[in-house]
Amino acid sequence: MSVLTVKNLNKTFKGGLFEKDRHVLRDVTFSLPEGETSGFVGSNGSGKTTTIKCVFDFIRPDSGEILFFGKPLSSPIKTRIGYLPERPYLYEFLSGMEFLRLHWNLCYGGSTKDFHERALEALRKVDLLEAKDRRLRTYSKGMLQRVGIAQAILTKPDLLILDEPMSGLDPDGRAMVKDILREEQKRGVSLFFSSHLLQDMEELCSHLIVINRGQILYDGGLSAFMAEFQSLEKAFQVLKVREERHV
């Protein structure tokens, strides 16, 4: 079963008075297999973030269909998904614990059952237990990224969608995020994360989606992809050249 199916997604941003319209997504179609880690790779500006924003309805697509677990996005579906945007800006006046409490309340209303246990577990996973009562404005960039991941895994989601989760982090921070993702993999969570760094994909993914200039170039298993092209870097270049010739 597919945890996320995206079919023929199109999006054009209207240009200004003297600007051309920008067709940023062209018939984007892919699906994420259940329980696998899917990487969404593409150059900067290729349409990764726009696709993810369309998936969550932050950006209204012009056409296309998006199904989570076979159904359109709804409140019950949203409780089964964890999300971390690119460069997460958080409410910095809240402490780590208050931030998690807010997200818990938004998911489960006033029910405080299990909150404390789950919050401490999530904070332990991201190594922020000691900083849980500090205001987020005192957190470093890496800590903010980690507390963002903590809110994403707080509700033990079935699907985790992370937009560039390792961008801007130092090597230690990147290693920590990868460890967290591996732990979630073991739990059987379906993972979907975008990156423009091919090394991350090779290390974590079993399924790969390649996007360039708003078009999907590849959607399939990583091993099949590697068998054809030997290295991701080479494959990415070849696919881009093929697509440009085709255009």
Partner: peptide, 14 residues
């Protein structure tokens, strides 16, 4: 602008 609303709207909040 800061995109703080993204996390909120990714939750079951209309």
């Amino acid at each position: 602008e800061k995109q703080t609303c993204l996390l909120i709207l990714s939750r079951p909040v209309s």
